[in-house]
């Protein structure tokens, strides 16, 4: 059987000066699946995501979205490609000079040339789908709590009905209940849209809830990938250490650190 891959990454490298962040990423994300990338802080998760989005230019390798090469493509082609993407940023990244409804409608108004009246109606619909209503539509992002900001950001990410949605640590900085609410919403939104989702997180509860597939990244490489059911019996020492949150193991092993510095 052939499953078409929405995103294909082959040997993606990225360095900042002498810091080699990505050292040959290989990853396939099938159409309509929800892939979660786990890994510690500073292992290159965010950089990988931004390489796919084109916010950071990868040094070498190949990133194909719908079979179309992203690395080295023209600015215009990338801007066209952006219309397929939605992104939920870690800190929300809401535009604080604009009211909530305009934040949600931003992609509709500027990306899809929709009129403001229609966009506002659609934005309020999207706000309702993440459990908020017209009452907050005219507030400014600074007037909302962290959890509410995340939900508005989620509404903005799904407003243009994107084919691919990226979630950058969606539950970081939220209380456990709000985190679960966000996880539920992400699951629901992705299913409703039939979109392909790529999430990066180090919150295992969140990962297990959202994921169909899980990939583990360590020192700029994918060290394990598989369906979420296999996570507990992966047999991979890196994954075992990470999901059980142990201080001892190959990730923190001085032996592997020695290898890295050599």
């Amino acid at each position: 059987m052939t499953i078409r891959n929405k995103i294909e990454m082959r040997n993606v490298f990225k360095s900042f000066g002498t810091k080699h962040v990505l050292q040959g990423i290989n990853l396939d994300i099938p159409v309509g699946s929800s892939m979660v990338i786990i890994g510690g802080s500073g292992t290159g998760k965010s950089v990988m995501l931004k390489c796919v989005l084109g916010l950071i230019q990868a040094d070498k390798g190949s990133i194909k979205v719908d079979g179309q090469e992203m690395i080295g493509s023209s600015t215009r082609a990338r801007e066209e490609m952006m219309k397929k993407f939605g992104m939920l940023f870690q800190g929300g990244a809401l535009f604080d000079s604009l009211p909530v409804w305009y934040n949600v409608a931003f992609g509709l108004i500027h990306g899809k040339d929709m009129g403001k009246k229609d966009a506002r109606i659609l934005a309020i619909e999207k706000l309702e789908s993440v459990g908020m209503g017209e009452a907050i539509a005219d507030l400014y992002p600074a007037e909302l709590s962290g959890g509410m900001q995340k939900r508005v950001a989620l509404a903005r990410a799904i407003a243009t009905n994107p084919e691919i949605i990226f979630f950058d640590e969606p539950t970081t900085g939220l209380d456990p209940i709000m985190a679960d609410v966000i996880n539920e919403l992400i699951g629901k939104c992705v299913k409703n849209l039939g979109a392909t989702a790529l999430t990066i997180t180090h919150d295992m509860a969140s990962a297990k809830k959202i994921a169909d597939h899980i990939a583990m990244i360590h020192e700029g490489k994918i060290v394990w990938t598989g369906p979420v059911e296999d996570l507990e019996k992966s047999g991979n020492p890196y994954v075992d250490q990470f999901i059980h949150g142990r201080a001892d193991g190959p990730i923190t092993d001085p032996q592997s650190n020695l290898l890295k510095s050599a």
Partner: peptide
């Protein structure tokens, strides 16, 4: 806006 990723957010919203 750069620090809070709002500039990246503009790009992802096709602006």
């Amino acid at each position: 806006m750069r620090v809070t990723e709002q500039i990246d957010a503009l790009s992802t919203l096709s602006v």
